[in-house]
Nucleic acid binder design. Structure first.
Lengths: 195, 195
DNA sequence: ACTGAAACCGACCGACCGGTCGGTTTGGGG
DNA sequence: CCCCAAACCGACCGGTCGGTCGGTTTCAGT
């Protein structure tokens, strides 16, 4: 028998909460809503998490784990500055568009004030990611010998904006589909930031 | 005596609500908070607006008015496709960074569900703006005779993302100040989308 | 001085929120 | 078969929310 045939209940709660938070917002979703969606009583839900904030924090932390596994670690295994940057753009977009990783969009949008300690941990991880992207860009600029009138910092913010804004308008059935989106965004950014 | 020495009370309420919504979020701000900040009772506040939603809608509508006045109308008065696009980028960034127009960031971030009718009106205005930008980009591409591998639609979304994401990281006292930001973003986008 | 409407107050309402708690069910190891 | 801890239930709590309402103040026009 498979060791993990039954999901960790905490993870199942997080998955459900992520879905509801994405659909109705954090404040628009009550703990009752979460419990009901899991066919649980509110008391039963509080057996697994001791506060709504704890759920939100774990959601955001999990989102950062996903980003680390599916983007950063994959890119680290590559060589060639431009190839690494190109891959980062593709993978990051894929994560944002991924139906299954709703935690990402929750984290992108929700700015509900977490307890300061937790907030700091998330912000630090976000900042690390931006620095990683910034370094990638600097490497790619160096490799191409570009006349750096565009700072890696500004370029990194521009790239994060382009990609993280996608969820605001993207529709899977729309005219601008995934692979096409990746191609065009990559073209725009490469020509724009590595000139 | 000046006819409008005293502000329209509704506008003063909107200004205060915008400030509080930006600082604490829409759900994190109660009608009591708004009333208290105005040195009003909640009952007094409800004399001017009949619901919290009505305040949010007027805030968002006002934000769209500002965009129309300060960006679209200014750009319409210009000639030369590239000059118009360049100016749009600068003005749009300036509006996002403007201390006094907090309604903008409220609208960019808050996705509290408005009554469908109101929601549609705001969304229609947003869509109009994207179309306006899209046409500007198409004109600029044509004027430059660029080999259009980048569609105006994708470029418009990329630009909106770059700019509308700024409020997520921008700090007035940071190293990347306003004019510098405008210059670099313009460079990135022109090289990226008009290649 | 009087009046009427607009502005405003403050107590109040029902609903719902996040969270608690004492007790019951469940199921695997001895 | 029993035990015990983990899982779970459901009633409950204090507090706050958006919104209401009847009454009072303010003040411009006459």
């Amino acid at each position: 028998m498979p060791r993990e045939a039954i999901l960790d209940p905490r993870q199942e709660i997080l998955r459900t909460a992520a879905r509801l938070f994405q659909e109705q917002g954090y404040d628009g979703t009550s703990m009752n809503d979460v419990a009901a969606a899991l066919k649980l009583s509110k008391g039963g839900l509080y057996h697994h998490f001791q506060s709504k904030d704890e759920i939100l924090f774990n959601l955001m932390d999990h989102a950062m784990n996903i980003t680390e596994e599916r983007v950063i670690n994959k890119v680290r295994g590559l060589s060639g500055a431009e190839e690494r940057l190109r891959t980062l753009i593709r993978l990051h977009i894929e994560v944002v568009l991924s139906e299954s990783d709703r935690e990402i969009t929750v984290m992108l949008h929700e700015n509900h004030p977490l307890p300061p300690a937790l907030r700091r941990r998330i912000n630090a991880r976000k900042k690390d990611y931006v620095h990683f992207v910034q370094n990638l860009i600097a490497d790619a600029q160096r490799a191409r010998g570009s006349q750096g009138s565009v700072s890696p910092r500004a370029a990194a913010f521009a790239l994060m904006g382009m990609i993280n804004w996608i969820y605001q308008w993207y529709k899977p059935e729309g005219e601008l589909r995934g692979p096409d989106l990746v191609r065009q965004y990559t073209e725009i950014f490469f020509a724009g930031a590595l000139q």
